[in-house]
């Protein structure tokens, strides 16, 4: 009888382990940021001859006061908070919903930009960041 209970206990333990593992795998299908209520904004970047322009879509962000833009080493970090909580469904096997409260985006910057002169403006739910390129060059004399 004791042996039966021992086998039963081991089977239960094994099942618990399998279920926990499966749950962890499903969890991983949702990005960590999203589980924390953080979303990576849709981003569009393009270059002009003098600037690098980065645009981030920040729906539900109310004003520029809710946005922080900073440069840490050679990375541009944008964070924005949403005052109104917003829930939406995520496609995964558990089909659970997530409450969004913040955006965060890290953008590696190229070497040839002037971080001292970065400008940003927020209009109609879109943040535009203009990063001037550092002008490097020299004049070549033609013989």
């Amino acid at each position: 009888m004791e042996e039966f209970f021992e086998i039963y206990r081991r089977i239960r333990e094994e099942m618990r382990r399998i279920i926990e593992e499966a749950e962890r795998e499903f969890e991983e299908l949702i990005p960590y940021e999203l589980r924390e209520g953080m979303l990576e904004p849709l981003t569009h970047a393009y270059e002009t001859p003098s600037e690098l322009v980065i645009m981030l879509d920040l729906p539900l962000v109310r004003s520029k006061d809710d946005i922080s833009v900073r440069v840490d080493e050679d990375t541009l970090i944008v964070e924005a908070s949403i005052q109104r909580k917003f829930s939406f469904d995520i496609e995964n096997p558990f089909f659970r919903s997530c409450t969004l409260s913040k955006y965060r985006k890290e953008i590696p910057l190229p070497e040839n930009v002037d971080i001292e002169s970065i400008r940003a403006r927020f209009r109609n739910g879109v943040l535009e960041i203009r990063i001037p390129k550092r002008r490097r060059g020299l004049r070549i004399e033609i013989e």
Binding site: L39, L42, D57, P59, L60, F88, E91, L100, G125
Partner: peptide, 14 residues
Amino acid sequence: QAEELKIKLRELMK
């Protein structure tokens, strides 16, 4: 409902 739509449709947009 534009702002909510923008969030809901972001995966389709990607």
